[in-house]
Design a binder for these strands. Structure first.
Lengths: 143, 143
DNA sequence: AGGTGTAGTGGAGAATTGTGGATAAAAGTG
DNA sequence: CACTTTTATCCACAATTCTCCACTACACCT
């Protein structure tokens, strides 16, 4: 189960260490692509299969679906983890997501997300407000 | 059945001993995440399964649902109990809940809650006042 | 009351993780 | 073809984390 959040840094060679806790599940090779809200998404090879299957099933006649698929597929890249569990973040992904030295890596059960640290802080601060609201409607975590 | 409240301390290595009474039910691994009113919540693996299942059913295409699941999953963390039944509280959770040295652990039947001691005192003091009111509302429900 | 056992707290050494740098290979350029 | 620049692999350090063990206090039992 990929959950939790970790603060890591991208060094000046664009290398980013993935949290050690996740490495077992991730395997030696992962797929990195653009996500929503300007973050990056990391899938295991297996999860990527599932995702791309689903994308393939979207009706390509719909312009929206098409642009979404293009967004994900065209910007996806396979990256190998080096011996120390680091990945290399390509320039175009780094640029897209505005990643600087400090990033946050979030486990989201079937995937990881990589955020610029300050962006994540802003986002989660806002999200927190909404969550309290939703939770209070759903009942204290009984959902 | 997880009931009762206990005062424990977090040492300077962020370790927190869970009450011995609960250990049998909790197992060797638990999930800790953010709760309402700035407390932390501890689930057994089993209870967490149920939770995350429900979360998985939410559509990720909707912004609200997305931010909700992201918030809950990213804030959660799997932690193993050490040989003495202690868990490690990650920085971001410690910060969120304002936990200092002294904390209160409450059993809430299917989950635990962890509170900053003084926050708990204030909260339960206020809650006490409201109890009479609530009870009178529950009366007609046969409770 | 005294002894025994369990629970909670604290600390020290060992192992792992994250980060940075150095060296070797590859690719692009004049 | 030589040279520069980029990319990849390898190694080393430092800091954090983990594991194990010791101590104290309270509670229970005889």
């Amino acid at each position: 189960m990929l959950i939790g959040q970790y603060k890591h840094t991208i060094d000046n060679k664009k290398r980013l260490a993935l949290p050690a806790k996740f490495r077992g599940e991730l395997g030696a090779k992962v797929i990195v692509t653009k996500g929503v809200e300007n973050c990056l998404v990391v899938y295991t090879e297996k999860e990527w299969e599932v995702m791309s299957q689903k994308l393939g099933n979207l009706s390509i006649s719909q312009t929206e679906a098409r642009s979404f698929t293009r967004h994900l597929l065209a910007s996806a890249t396979e990256v190998e983890l080096d011996k120390l569990g680091r990945i290399l973040v390509p320039d175009y992904l780094k640029e897209y997501s505005g990643l600087e030295k400090n990033v946050v890596i979030c486990g989201l059960s079937n995937r990881l997300e990589i955020w610029n640290e300050t962006k994540w802080e802003n986002y989660s601060k806002n999200a927190e407000k909404g969550v309290e609201e939703i939770v209070s409607k759903l009942g204290p975590l009984g959902i």
